[in-house]
């Protein structure tokens, strides 16, 4: 971490447009060789130690008031997602209704952070969510594989932004990353970031999906985290949810360490989004413990931490009902999406 990264003015990138952003990269991203040197110079990750730490944090026992707090916080952090070939406007509208009012019987339940859909469903979602404050997130860049020409990816992104997406969840080119073409990945992220800029020069938030399951090693996840942050990601996201290995506590812990260290070095705070496979309230609370004890409470808000999930919401709702009533709830008492 001794490689120079020119510090950039503190403060979130959100809403700030792209101004000043180019200054971050400095000598580190000047060339493929320099970028590789920097990324390969990051401290190594010992897999066993990392997983042991994640497992120990997983034994935290979150009870009563802390649990109630965590459940509501988790609900508010959900990017409620539908990414199916079978998605229809009706399905998306149902999901939007659920996101705005997760529990029809309890107005105190917070709404989710965003509804996450394919680009062609953005307009439907935007319309359904109008005035609610729930964001529309759209996957883009030839999600989930990312195997398309850059122009196609940028067009995909622009279409989603033009349709009203507040947030773009892009996938990186894992092939390029694994082949060591880091600058290419870096430039693609930057290009997609530029495609997020609206005509009024405001911009959609950019979430960068690594697909940790395909990056395979923790060292790669750490490198990819820094690569994406240097390239201007607002969020770094574990997975598409479309491969065998999705979000894991250890991988997320590692990314939380990366955003923590990145802010210490540059003053820039970046969010983290685990996605895929997080289905139970218990799991979600464990992730919040990871956030709390790794990046710290600054990240404990929907602005800085999200869950990419669909069935998670109902389990959180059932646990919430259990806490409120003392009775275990059942699937008949939460709505199907």
């Amino acid at each position: 971490m001794d490689t120079e990264v020119s510090a950039r003015a503190a403060g979130p990138r959100a809403g700030g447009g792209a101004t000043g952003w180019e200054g971050v990269t400095g000598s580190v991203t000047g060339s493929d060789a320099a970028l590789k040197r920097f990324l390969h110079g990051l401290p190594g990750v010992d897999a066993v130690g990392l997983e042991e730490r994640a497992a120990v944090l997983g034994t935290r026992s979150i009870k009563t008031s802390a649990k109630a707090y965590a459940i509501d916080l988790a609900i508010s952090m959900i990017d409620l997602t539908t990414l199916e070939g079978a998605d229809t406007p009706g399905k998306v509208r149902t999901l939007c209704a659920k996101g705005m009012r997760p529990d029809p019987g309890d107005r105190a339940v917070p709404q989710v952070a965003a509804i996450c859909v394919y680009p062609d469903m953005v307009a439907v979602a935007k319309d359904a969510l109008k005035g609610s404050g729930v964001q529309v997130a759209s996957v883009a860049t030839a999600f989930p594989s990312g195997r398309a020409a850059l122009e196609v990816k940028l067009a995909d992104t622009r279409a989603a932004v033009a349709a009203g997406a507040d947030e773009i969840d892009m996938v990186i080119d894992r092939g390029a990353f694994l082949a060591g073409r880091y600058l290419e990945v870096f430039e693609q992220i930057q290009a997609v970031g530029e495609a997020c800029v609206r005509p009024d020069s405001s911009r959609a938030h950019l979430k960068v999906i690594f697909e940790n399951g395909e990056l395979a090693t923790y060292d790669n996840i750490r490198r990819c985290s820094w690569l994406a942050m240097l390239a201007g990601a607002d969020f770094i996201k574990t997975s598409t949810g479309k491969v065998a290995v999705n979000a894991t506590p250890a991988g997320t812990l590692l990314m939380l360490e990366a955003v923590r260290d990145f802010r210490r070095m540059t003053g820039v705070q970046v969010g983290v989004k685990p996605a895929g496979g997080i289905r139970t309230a218990k799991d979600a609370v464990k992730y919040l413990v990871l956030v709390n004890e790794t990046a710290g409470e600054d990240w404990l808000s929907p602005q800085w931490f999200r869950f990419g999930a669909s069935s998670l919401l109902n389990d959180l709702l059932m646990q919430r009902q259990k806490l409120a009533t003392g009775r275990y709830s059942g699937p008949d008492y939460v709505t199907v999406d």
């Binding site: 935290r60 026992s61 979150i62 009870k63 009563t64 008031s65 802390a66 649990k67 707090y69 965590a70 916080l73 919040l288 413990v289 709390n292 409470e297 404990l300």
Partner: peptide, 8 residues
């Protein structure tokens, strides 16, 4: 403190 663990 945002996320204070209750006694367990």
């Amino acid at each position: 403190m945002a996320f204070a663990y209750a006694p367990a």
